[in-house]
Structure formats: C-alpha cells, structure tokens
Design a protein around this nucleic acid. Structure first.
Length: 157
DNA sequence: GATACAGGCTTGT
DNA sequence: ACAAGCCTGTATC
C-alpha cells in the first residue's frame, strides 16, 4: 500500500491536517486521522501556510488566499473556484451554487466531497437548504463542519 | 409536520 | 450502462 507523505502535518482543533505543495502551489490539504505523525514544515512557503492555519484556528483571523492547484476534473475545478468566492461567515446552499453554475445540486455535493484542499476551498460553507448537509462522505464528520462554521460566526447549525 | 418519490447532474464501477 | 452521492422540490399521508 502506498504511503502518502505530506510536506507538513499539523495539529488543529478539528484533527490533524496534511499539507502537500508543489513549487509555490498548494495541491492538497487533507484531514488526517489522529494517529498520524506530525511533520514540521521545512520550506518557508509551507511554514507560512502552517502559520496562517494556526492563526486561523486560534483567532478569528480569516484565511488568506494561497495559490491552489487542485487535481480534478474540469467540472470539479469550476465548482471549487466558485466556492472560494463565498465570503467567510456566510454559507450558500448546494442549490444556489448549482443554479449559478447551471448544474445540479448533487453534482455540487460530489465536487465538495472530493475537495482535495479543505478549508482553503471552503466546502464547509456549502450547506443543505434544510440542515448542515454532509461532510467528506461521513455523517460523523459533520461536527468538523459545524465547528468551522461556528468558528467563522455561523451559529445556525 | 413527516415521509415518499422523482428529477437532474457528475463520478466511479 | 448502472448505481450512488455533502440535494431539492412536489406530492401524499
């Protein structure tokens, strides 16, 4: 089995986060199980990102925009791009997003689910019209979504 | 209200 | 081609 190595793994209130970069781009920021070993960032670029993430978690600072380079289908990239335009502290429903992109709400869900860069592509700001919706394919992870939303000032979920 | 069903769109077998 | 997924709107108890 293939072991994925990250450029950095940091601890956060919602679990461990694995960061992978390529040149000066972020290619992945994934939620990891708690038994992952921490990896300190080595380059100044990854260090900067980790600092921002830590700051984001420990204060009300919102995340700055980093250059992203997510791998995915053209459709997924389109959705991810649209999601990045949702301002912090606000949420948008799958349906609204779907209407804007002229697609279906469930298709939006698929794109969210395969989001390789959590937080920076704010899939947690996309909610169902009635309820919070799911998160990363598992209902048990919606608490992460809730935490993030609450952290950004959304208390309706 | 609370279920049930069907519709619409993309992705992985 | 088929089934399934972070959904939604309408119909029917």
């Amino acid at each position: 089995m293939k072991q994925i190595t990250y450029d950095a793994v940091i601890a956060s209130p919602i679990g461990k986060l694995g960061l992978r970069t390529q040149d000066e781009y972020i290619t992945e920021l994934a939620w990891l199980p708690a038994n992952r070993k921490l990896i300190a960032p080595t380059s100044s670029f990854t260090q900067l990102i980790c600092n921002s993430l830590t700051l984001y978690f420990e204060s009300t600072t919102r995340l700055p925009c980093f250059p992203l380079q997510p791998q995915g289908t053209p459709f997924q990239r389109k959705v991810w791009l649209a999601m990045q335009k949702i301002p912090a502290g606000q949420v948008q429903s799958y349906g609204q997003l779907a209407a804007r992109l002229k697609t279906g709400s469930r298709a939006i869900g698929m794109a969210c689910r395969t989001n390789p860069i959590i937080l920076l592509i704010p899939c947690h700001r996309v909610v169902s019209v009635k309820g919070i919706g799911g998160y990363m394919g598992k209902a048990s992870r919606t608490n992460i979504k809730q935490w993030l939303l609450q952290h950004e000032g959304v208390h309706d979920y």
